[in-house]
C-alpha cells in the first residue's frame, strides 16, 4: 500500500483533496445562497430566508471533520450547515419553494430542513432551540455506543437563552460527545452583540469545565483544525467542547433586510467583503500552495454552477403538495 511507502506524500495528497473539497463546498453554499436571494427577488420563493454568505468556512470546516453518521443541529440561518453536511441541492431548493419533493415535503421550509440520511436533526427557528436536541443526540450516541458526535450550531444570539447553559452543564457532567459551535457574526438580528452579551463568551463555557477556543471563522483550515481536534476528543469519550467562530454575515439578517444603515455601517460591510471573504482568502492560499490555479477554479465554478442551476430548475418545475397532505405527519 502506498501509505506505508510514502506516508508524507499520501498525507499531503489527502490534504490537497480535502482543500479542494472544502473549496467546492464553500462555493456551493455561496452559489446556493445567491440563488435563494434571486428566487426571493423574483417572487418565486414564499416567505423569507436567512443567507449564510460570508460564513461558509464555518459549516464547511466543521462538517469536514464529521462523518456522514454524525449529527448536526442547525439554525434559521441553516442552508450552509445543510449543504456542508451533504444534503442534495435540488431537494433543498424544492423545500425552500414549498414543493412536495423538498426534504420535508414542503412542510418545513427554509428554517426547518432536516435529513436523517446526512445526520441533520433539523434547522430550528427558535433561537437556541436546538441546544437540547443536540445534547440529547449526544446522550443517545453515548448510551448506544455508536461513536457518533453531534455539533450544535448556533448564532451568538443564542447566548441569551438559558437552556443553552442548562444543557452545557449536563453535557459536561455526563461527558457527552457534543460540540457547541457559536457562530458570532456580531449581530443578533439588528442589534450588535456587544449590547446583549456581557463578559467573555468562552469563559461562560469554561465555567462548566468545557474546553474551548476562539477561531477565525473566515479561515476554513483553522475551523477544520479546531473542529477536528475537539470532535476527535469528543469521539474518544473525553466530553463536550465549545468553539467560538468569529465571522460576519455579508448581507441582511434575511433576504428582505436591504437597508441596514441604521444598525451597521456600509464601510464595515465593505471591509469584510473585500478583505475577509472566506472563499477569496482560501483561493489565495490554494494558489500560493500550488494546490490550484485559476483554470481549476473556473472549472469548479462551472461544475458547481451547473449543479446549482439544475437544482433550481428542478425545484421551480416541481409540483406543490396537494392540499390533502396538510394533516399528514402530525403523528407518527
Amino acid at each position: 500500500m502506498t501509505t506505508a511507502i510514502h506516508p508524507t506524500k499520501t498525507e499531503s495528497a489527502l490534504e490537497a483533496e480535502r482543500c479542494l473539497r472544502m473549496y467546492r463546498r464553500m462555493l456551493m453554499i455561496r452559489l446556493f445562497e445567491e440563488n435563494v436571494n434571486d428566487l426571493y427577488t423574483r417572487a418565486l420563493m414564499p416567505g423569507l430566508a436567512h443567507l449564510y454568505i460570508g460564513e461558509e468556512a464555518i459549516a464547511v470546516g466543521v462538517c469536514e471533520a464529521l462523518t456522514q453518521d454524525d449529527y448536526i443541529t442547525s439554525t434559521h440561518r441553516g442552508h450552509g450547515h445543510c449543504v456542508a453536511k451533504g444534503a442534495a441541492l435540488d431537494r433543498m431548493f424544492a423545500e425552500l419553494l414549498g414543493k412536495e419533493a423538498g426534504y420535508c415535503k414542503g412542510k418545513g421550509g427554509s428554517m426547518h430542513i432536516a435529513d436523517p440520511d446526512t445526520g441533520n436533526l433539523g434547522a430550528n427557528a427558535i433561537v437556541g432551540g436546538s441546544a437540547g436536541i443536540a445534547t440529547g443526540a449526544a446522550f443517545a450516541a453515548k448510551r448506544l455506543g455508536n461513536g457518533r458526535v453531534c455539533v450544535c450550531f448556533f448564532g451568538e444570539g443564542a447566548l441569551g437563552q438559558g437552556v443553552l447553559y442548562e444543557v452545557m452543564n449536563m453535557a459536561a457532567l455526563w461527558k457527552l460527545p457534543v460540540i457547541y459551535l457559536c457562530e458570532n457574526n456580531m449581530y443578533n438580528e439588528y442589534t450588535h452583540y456587544s449590547e446583549t452579551t456581557a463578559g467573555d463568551i468562552l469563559t461562560r463555557a469554561a465555567g462548566f469545565g468545557l474546553p474551548g477556543e476562539a477561531i477565525d471563522g473566515q479561515d476554513v483550515r483553522a475551523v477544520y483544525a479546531a473542529a477536528k481536534k475537539f470532535i476527535d476528543r469528543a469521539r474518544a469519550g473525553e466530553g463536550p467542547a465549545f468553539l467560538l467562530a468569529n465571522t460576519y454575515r455579508f448581507f441582511g439578517h434575511h433576504v428582505g433586510d436591504v437597508s441596514r444603515d441604521y444598525y451597521r455601517a456600509k464601510q464595515e460591510e465593505q471591509t469584510w467583503k473585500s478583505q475577509r471573504d472566506p472563499i477569496q482568502l482560501f483561493s489565495t492560499y490554494l494558489v500560493a500552495q500550488n494546490l490550484a490555479d485559476q483554470a481549476r477554479f473556473d472549472e469548479i465554478y462551472a461544475e458547481v454552477k451547473a449543479e446549482v442551476d439544475r437544482a433550481v430548475q428542478f425545484a421551480v418545475a416541481a409540483p406543490y403538495p396537494s392540499a390533502d397532505k396538510v394533516d399528514q405527519d402530525v403523528y407518527a
Binding site: 436533526l121 445534547t135 443517545a140
Partner: peptide, 14 residues
Amino acid sequence: GFTGIAVGAAMTGM
C-alpha cells in the same frame, strides 16, 4: 434542559 435532551435522545434511538 433535560426535557430538550429527552427530545434529542428520542429522535436518535432512545
